[in-house]
């Protein structure tokens, strides 16, 4: 099949898709109508449980079981990356070279590090009140740590970031989520049910179990991102093939 024939087949396919798409488009309902059966029920349930951020309520209260699966996916993905990128038999570890960093960059990054950390923790803590939550805040916290790599170099980051501790924290966050659910089960309600006192609407202490699950996810995601980046950084900056082995 040469290129001209291929282009013709593509053209025919595209024409068919265009016709079907136009036909379907004419029958689509209006964007953003006023009838939202699931949305209305989700918002009502969130307000009933004193959670201002409806998305967090759905993630950590109404559909908290799905979030358990999602965090297991992240854990599995990081585990897979660690297995694939670990030091192989034909690689050896060398110390990374120190880097020359402009003083303005270093100053800015060192000031920005605690600020970013604060913003990340703020996003995690306010998951039940404003947009954000454990996932987004956890990633911001992980990024804050890596500002040290930008400010100084990889050696400094390695001192600040012992990978086994973060791997343990990752597992701990995962386990905490599961154990919270089991604790609720043991207490007599359904798995991951919202049995804690619901608190006052629109304050930090509201939403029942949502802030706790938020914190667990925050720890898990932050640690997972740090471990993930550690594999890439090690491979790019520290691991070289053993002498005599050229790929």
């Amino acid at each position: 099949m040469n290129k001209a024939v291929r282009l013709w087949v593509l053209g025919v396919g595209c024409a068919g898709v265009a016709v079907l798409f136009a036909g379907a488009f004419r029958r689509l309902p209006e964007f953003g109508g006023s009838h939202h059966p699931y949305g209305a029920r989700a918002v009502a349930a969130a307000l009933h449980r004193h959670t201002a951020n409806v998305v967090s309520s759905v993630n950590f209260d109404q559909r908290s079981f799905d979030t358990l699966g999602e965090q297991a996916i992240l854990f599995g993905a990081v585990l897979g990356t660690v297995v694939v990128l670990r030091q192989a038999k034909d690689e050896r570890r060398v110390p990374p070279e120190p880097a020359v960093v402009a003083p303005t960059v270093r100053g800015y990054a060192l000031v920005s590090l605690p600020l970013t950390l604060l913003v990340g923790l703020y996003v995690v803590a306010h998951g039940q009140l404003s947009p954000g939550g454990g996932f987004q805040g956890g990633l911001v916290v992980a990024t804050a740590l890596h500002l040290l790599y930008v400010a100084v170099d990889y050696r400094a980051l390695e001192r600040l970031r012992p990978v086994p501790v973060f791997a343990l924290a990752d597992a701990f966050g995962d386990a905490a989520y599961l154990l919270l659910g089991l604790a609720v089960l043991v207490a007599g309600a359904s798995f991951l049910g919202n049995v804690l006192p619901l608190g006052t609407f629109n304050t930090l202490a509201s939403g029942g179990i949502v802030p706790l699950l938020n914190a667990a996810i925050g720890i898990e995601v932050a640690a997972a991102a740090v471990v993930l980046l550690a594999q890439f950084l090690d491979q790019a900056l520290e691991l070289v093939p053993r002498d005599g082995e050229h790929r």
Binding site: V94, P96, R155, L239
Partner: peptide
């Protein structure tokens, strides 16, 4: 080439 002094990439 593989670095003669055994150092890695500039980190």
């Amino acid at each position: 080439e593989s670095p003669a002094d055994g150092r890695g990439e500039e980190g």
